[in-house]
Amino acid sequence: MRTDQILTRLERVFARLDREPERPAHLQTPQMSRHRVVLLGSTLAFYLAIVVAVLTTSWLVRLDWQIMFFRPYEQWPQLHAFLDYLVVLGQRGPTAVMVAAWLGWRSWRQHTLRPLITLAVALLLLNVTVGAVKLGLGRLGPHYATEIGSAELFAGGDIFPSGHTANAVVTWGILAYLASTGVTRRVLSIVSAVVSLSVGATTVYLGTHWVSDVLLGWSAGLLIMLALPWFEPLIARTEAYVFDRRELLRRRAETGRMPAPVVSALTPLLSAGGKWQLRPAAGTGGEPVPQPVPANVAATAATSAAATTVAAVVAVHSSAPRATVHPAGRPHVIRSERTPVTPAGSRRPPHTDRAAARGAAARPVAGG
């Protein structure tokens, strides 16, 4: 009869979280394959086509104005409250914090910094490329347009391409890029595509972006995701550098906590053969233990020992009292070599008055 314990779903989740974290060895970084290169080239061509279409005030600009006059937020006002919250999924600050928190926990569990570094590189590329085009073209948004039918370029705006759309493609697409299995990568790719399309359409509904802005934002985000494998060597070198610095700081911290060696109980002596001989100091009662050391270490120790001895002798001579100087004609002898001399009589000086009184009292007095 089997008595295996049946775990609930919550217990299985906690059991998986309690496992010892380890860095997975089967993860493979995406490579720049021929299929990816073809997609990158096609997306780049689409990106340039949109820019040219807006610069030449083509049919795409007329479509922008037609949708702007249609005013979707007035046609379906019941969707306004919900879409105001949905567009937050494309804002750079909240989405970056949420994704960075998840990737940080994953980095800690797997003992690797690749997820966080990859996110940082992708966001840096997004800010540089999208920001440069925004400031360079300077297009105004639908709410600030001044001339009907105009592309509104070089007017001090910053909405072309759509930053919300490009950020949604990169931020949520990085989860699919870092997936560990093929099934997970496909599922997350579909989720990121739906989120980015929804955010782009929401900006058009709210009237904050033209349709061409959203199309260029999708293209800009997709270009960054397709070009990420070219930056994998940089990501690997950055991770190795951070780990090397961490190990160096850890060794320095451990060296600083090590206690200083006690050398007062043992006296090192250097023999002619280039070896250490540790002689116990007075009162320790141990035996000398020879330990071979390299010649350069032995020479350095001998120099240090000689310098210590000289310093001790100088300290003793400087603290001792100054010796008495004897004349040259009279040799100095120590107390043990002197001839003992016994004093003859009392050491007190003679007093004549006391002696006379003592002699008068001792003499008998005769009568008559």
Rank of each mutant, 00 (worst) to 15 (best):
V13E: 13
A81M: 09
D64I: 00
W76L: 15
F70E: 08
T29K: 14
V38Y: 10
Y85P: 00
L60W: 06
R71K: 13
W59T: 08
R71C: 01
F69G: 07
Q28P: 03
E20K: 11
L86A: 10
V52T: 13
F82T: 12
R71E: 15
I67Q: 06
Y73C: 00
L44Y: 05
Q75F: 09
Q28S: 10
P77I: 01
R71G: 00
Y47W: 15
P72E: 05
R62Y: 08
G41H: 02
T43Y: 04
V87L: 04
R12Y: 06
V52H: 08
P30K: 04
V13Y: 10
S42Q: 10
R34Y: 07
T57S: 14
H35W: 13
L40K: 03
S42M: 15
V37N: 07
A81F: 04
G41A: 09
Q78W: 11
T43L: 06
L39N: 08
E11P: 00
Q78M: 04
V13F: 15
L44Q: 02
Q78P: 00
L27W: 15
F82R: 07
D64H: 03
W76D: 02
T57D: 12
T57V: 14
G41R: 02
L17I: 10
V37W: 11
F14W: 15
S58W: 08
L48W: 11
V51H: 04
L48S: 13
T56H: 07
Y47T: 14
E22V: 12
L79D: 05
L40C: 09
A53P: 05
R23D: 10
G41N: 11
V37F: 11
P24D: 06
S33H: 04
Y85C: 00
L83D: 05
R34A: 14
A45T: 11
V38E: 09
F82D: 09
F70C: 03
L17H: 01
R71M: 06
Y73P: 00
R23F: 00
A81V: 11
R23A: 05
M68H: 14
V87W: 02
L44D: 03
S58V: 01
L63T: 08
E11H: 02
R12D: 06
S42N: 06
I50V: 12
V13Q: 11
S42L: 15
A25F: 01
F46Q: 07
D64K: 02
L83P: 03
V38P: 02
A81T: 07
